[in-house]
Structures are given as C-alpha cells and as structure tokens.
C-alpha cells in the first residue's frame, strides 16, 4: 500500500486507541448494562448506593413519642391524632442534638390547609369543619384560643 494511505490510517488507529485508553480510565467500573438491559439498565451502578445514603429528615411520630409521651398521649385522644407531629413541628432531622429546638408553624395558613371550608363532594375535605378566615378573628393566631393538641371546644384556652 502507498504511503498516502498508510499514514492517515495510522493516525486514525492512534486516535481510536487513545479514545479507548481515556475511556478505560474515565468511565467508572460500575458503569455498564445492568439487569434491565441497554434500554433501561445502562447506568453507573454505584449511584444506587449514593441515593440510599441520602439524609433522612422526617423521622416520624414514633421517634417523638418516647420523650414527649405526655403530648403524644393528649393528641392521640383527639381527631388530630392522625396528624404526624412533624407536619406542624417541622422535620426532626437529628433532634435533640441538631436542631436542639424545632420551629413550630403556628400560622393561620397552616390550620387553614384543612380548615378552610371547601365543600367539595367526593373529597374528604367536605367532612372537615371549617371557618371563614376573613370573619373568624382575622389576624390572630389560631393557637391563641384553640389548643391544637385538644382541638375540641372543651380544649379552648
């Protein structure tokens, strides 16, 4: 074969080898075709473990109930028993070490999420008692009068 064919061919072969070498170092070992085949299962397997290590913030009512037994007991006897602690108190994360104190959301808007009256048939919302926030003591925090852990009228402060 002539030189004008061989030389570019050599350059091309070198380039291909170079790409293959770079690829061998750059692409992580766990990257490849996995269980579901090339179409759905072509990925870096180590990423699955990365996601499993993500930090849990919402710890759940069971995490709270031992130290805050009294509060837990009170609310458990009311219709508000279904509301997880962290919905109003915020995510526990590593409480009590971090954060030492949780910030309670006492805004009217929080209560209105359920207690703004929307009489929507076929939705559970229709069965929740509501108030018109523009007529019912506007501007005042609900918890000034109502105890969210004893939401019945006998629990009024």
């Amino acid at each position: 074969m002539n030189n004008h064919v061989l030389r570019p061919l050599l350059v091309v072969i070198l380039l291909v080898v170079l790409v293959l070498i770079v690829r061998a170092f750059y692409v992580p070992k766990s990257f490849g075709v996995h269980q579901r085949g090339y179409m759905y299962g072509w990925y870096r397997d180590a990423n699955v473990e990365d996601w499993k290590k993500f930090k849990v913030k919402y710890q759940g009512t069971d995490y709270c109930k031992d130290c805050h037994a009294k509060n837990h007991e009170t609310i458990m006897m009311t219709p508000h028993a279904i509301i997880p602690c962290e919905d109003c108190h915020g995510p526990a994360v590593d409480h009590p070490s971090d954060p030492a104190k949780l910030t309670i959301d006492k805004s009217r808007e929080l209560c209105l999420r359920c207690h703004y009256p929307l009489a929507y048939p076929t939705s559970g919302r229709a069965n929740i008692r509501g108030v018109d926030p523009e007529k019912h003591n506007p501007g005042m925090e609900c918890s000034l009068c109502h105890n969210p852990h004893k939401p019945g009228l006998e629990g009024l402060k």
């Binding site: 996995h34 269980q35 759905y40 299962g41 072509w42 990925y43 048939p121």
Partner: peptide, 30 residues
C-alpha cells in the same frame, strides 16, 4: 364535582425518560 389528585413520578415499567437519555444518567433500578 370537585376533588384533589396528588401527582408524583409514576416509576413506569417502560420509562420513556430513561430511553431518551443519551448518556445513561437516568435509569431504572432493579
């Protein structure tokens, strides 16, 4: 009639989002 519908990822058995990814960055775990 009136009602609420929560939405989230459907984690499809045939996920089109995974098919179109050109670099294998999104995938279906086992």
């Amino acid at each position: 009639k009136a009602f609420f519908v929560p939405k989230l990822c459907n984690q499809c058995e045939n996920p089109p989002c995974v098919q179109v990814c050109p670099v294998g960055a999104t995938y279906q775990a086992p």
